[in-house]
Amino acid sequence: MREIFNIFIVSMKVIFISSSISLIISFFISFLILDKKLKFLFLFFQSFLFIPSVLIGLLIYIIFKRSGILGFLNLLYTSKIIIIGETILIIPLMVLFIVNGIKDRFYEIKEINEVFCGNFLKNLLLMIKEFRNELLSSFFIGCGRVMGETGLAMIVGGNIKGETRTFSTSIVLYTMRGEIEKSIHAGILLFAFSLIFNLFYFFNSKKWKYF
């Protein structure tokens, strides 16, 4: 079915791109927090952990609509703006996760790099290698969060067929229309994907290694 395929493509695009960009940004922020011991920065992100996604959606809407500051970019109601929104949404989550995951070993690795005269880039590569698992896990957590997100996607995306309609926004639409069957189909697919992501996360995380 053409429709389901389009929804799948849009959803996957949004999930993967926003999680990837957020991973890179979050890693840098986490690195900064640990390296320069910026506790207040960590608290800053921690306080935004539970920010409702619709609030971010609202803010983005105000900024990117035609009469808004960045209105000239014409990004509203495109998949790009959803990606921007979701990326911003999951950064606090990822930062929290990464910092907590790597803080125990961060300073040791840093010292090894210092003692052996590694430069900033070498340190970065070393850490990415060492913390590969934690970074990957946080990637999947980001994916999971974006996957079910609805409010932001609706507000800034407009649920446009073929363009900004994701699994979750489709379910809203089908339910509103009264097409409960279609809604359930989309729901099952969404559930299947979230299950796959959950499994990826689980198999990758430390806990699995104990079995």
Partner: peptide, 14 residues
Amino acid sequence: LNVSYLHQKNILLK
């Protein structure tokens, strides 16, 4: 660059 150091604790990489 002319100095080498050994930590008291074993710091090993994956």
